[in-house]
Nucleic acid binder design. Sequence first.
DNA 1: GCAAGGTC
Length: 918
Amino acid sequence: MRPLRVLNVAEKNDAAKELSRIMSRGQSFRREGFSKFNKIYEFEYSIFGQNAKMIMTSLSGHLMTLDFTASHQKWHSCAPVALFSAPVTKYVSENYLPIKRTLEREVRGCQILIIWTDCDREGENIGFEVIDVCQTICPNLRIYRAMFSEITPQSITRAAQNLVSPDLLQSQAVDVRMELDLRIGAAFTRFQTLRLQKVFPEVLSDNLISYGSCQFPTLGFVVERYKQVEQFVPETFFKIKVTHEMEDTKVDFTWKRGRLFHRLPCLVLYQICLENPTAKVLSTSSRPKSKWRPLPLDTVELEKLASRKLKINSKETMKIAEKLYNQGFISYPRTETNMFPKSLDLRPLVENQTVDPNWGAFASNVLEQGPNPRHGNKSDNAHPPIHPTKYTNSLQGNDKRLYEFIVQHFLACCSEDAKGQETSVEIEIAGEKFTATGLMIIARNYLDVYPYDRWNAKTIPVYNQGEEFQPSSIEVCTDATHADHIETIKNRCYVGVQQDGTFLPGQLGMGLVEGYDLMGFELSKPRLRAELEADLKRICEGTRNKHDVLVEQVAKYREQFVQAVQEAVKLDQALASYFGDPQEFIDEVLGSEDERGSEPIRLCPRCQTEQMILKKTKDGSYMVGCQGYPRCRASAFFPKFVIEASVDESLCGNCQPGDVHKVKFKFKRGSVPPMMPLEYTGCVGGCDESLRELLELKDLTRLPSESVGGSNSYVRGGKSSHSGARGYQQSSNRGRGRGRGTTSKARGRGNGRSATAQGVTRPAQRGGFSANQPTRDEGRGFVPSGQTWQQNNAGRDASFQPGSGFNQFPSTSSFGRDDENCVVCTCGQPATKLTVKKDGPNKVARFPKKDQTKGGRFTVVQNPEDRAAISLNGETLLQVVAVSRSSAVLRQKATVELPGEENADCVTKKVTLDDRAQ
DNA sequence: GCAAGGTC
């Protein structure tokens, strides 16, 4: 019988080497292939019950690449939209030809081919690329797939004894992904690059502005997070701190109210405490507390922890993890599973580690107790959680650190939770309650092997209930440290990674996301991609076929693309916030006037020399523009729901100078308010209020930079979402030099992915931003920048004058009602319930809302100005009301003046500003 | 000059 000859192909050289070493028990023979990166290993192995000559070689990932055929490869060879249907071809690129030649040479004379690529979707597809090549040479080849998720002797032996057929469905899912990625990526990239290079030549003429179905949602995510941070307006808050030193131990008590956002009420309460500073112990308690050991490790968790604890970024982490896997030290690092399957015997894995000088004893202890991992809730049904498969102490650098982390995490999760006892003391000073907690650690357990978690013991002395004592200090502290972090972020409005490791989007990135968001698509959101992923999964499960999914997804993205092209002006518009006035792309949009037709409406109100013309754009919508373009750029684009527009003979009686023709419109049904007829003839000169509103017409006499909201008059729009973009830009400059006169170009270029510094500041003279320009307020309305919200609230303050009393608060007279929640003041009267919603920048609460008043008190009370809440009328009135986010508390009678100054003290019961409080 | 996914 002819000796069995088997070709084995791994995904990369590392894996081939380790597989060969394990299968041959170190007895393999290595020789060169055509590719210098991919060696060939030969050894004897027993398979299918007989001795075989094994030939093991490898690839370097995908062997083949997908691209358009030559007819569509050149950027100007076709309209980008054609790329959704252009022919594509799969081929082996030049630098991979040596690998292909090795396969072709080595497969000759083989009866069997075994695919040893990674056991995931891509691995399956890569396997089929190998099969393609090999079957061409040997049509009768028997083809198998080895299934394994760790490169250990046991797994590999098991895989060799349980060979399966390659999974065509998984491979097909990857084919679909590839083709979509290519078509979408190429179409959008060509479109936006070609357009934006022309629209912003000064900034972008050299940029490749790439688009990808994965990169764009990722960018969207970064932008979204950035904006969340950007919109956060820090608020100063105040709290009372009590400390008590005894027996060499200093105990900090925290205020039960947490913090107040208004200074005065806090000072009042503080003053009351100072006057009678004896603390009385209300209660003491003690309860067991445990700190949970970590869950079994999945990929995302590995990346997160490595980043946080080891300061290794996720890309580097995965690179190292791959290497450790290929060297057989750890299991397959790409897994979504965080529970160990019952079938996996953890004992030998723990036993491997007992030899280590640092954690060996711990591992032995785990063995004695029996490994007892926590059970997560995720499983990909393919790979177990990441765990060490072999002991080593020969690694260096980050390889060593990551391996140690994986081992320690594994041992920790197989161990026991840490156990402790928590003691709490509650005290009262002049009616104010404070608590302190201490922690005694009873058993560190997993913490002994896991230095990445901390649990600090905190001793507090024994307090006896009812005991009274004088705290060594009571102080008011202002806490606004978080503001510093935010400020730092604001001051670094550049692209790239900050020192603290967080990402900041650049101008281009921001603009692109905002532009596509303006179109109302979800291109910057993960939904589309997630839907594709779901379909790919269905292909793998066999519930949908490859062809249907491909057709459907191509159609879906093509539709978005077509719309994007039609509304491309919105991209310009969004980017104009960062890069200055766009160069009009109008020529290419409109085509020649002869083709499209044009009719004069009136003399251009801006340049007063040329006529304003009604034109139809390429995408079928209408606009009016000055004939003097590009010398004069006065223009207005009509919304899409204008389905017909023509210059009417009738003239406007109001508008000047000269004849101003009315325009006859036909609107799309359902797109205009009910009172508006579908056919309407009116003046677009600005006198027709309803038309101006409907079409969002701008004052054409202004220069773009002067137009309302800073919007470019040549584009329509400038509604909320656009304003948002502008507002962002503004707010990011708040507090910094504005309009420094540097041009965007001078400040460097970048495509949003580079770390090139790109200021978000835009030249004032071009952007027309003055200090009075609006800035974003919670992403919706505008408030004047620089002054933030106080100025915005000016109107409200005005109505909040002495004499107006409390009656503008909706429910001021809930005395005695709402029994359960009624609070009686120390003066004997029930508390007042106030419900005014502060319409400031933090209306959406940023701080954790905590009910600080257990036992029930008030609903949330906010008032625009704490002074106003406390006092009105300038005479003796009311009780002092302490106001926090979640409670209003009545304390005592006081006389209050309406202060003119921020620092004025205004309580009759004199509240002096303690030095410590300033 | 396009993507994303393998990998060197």
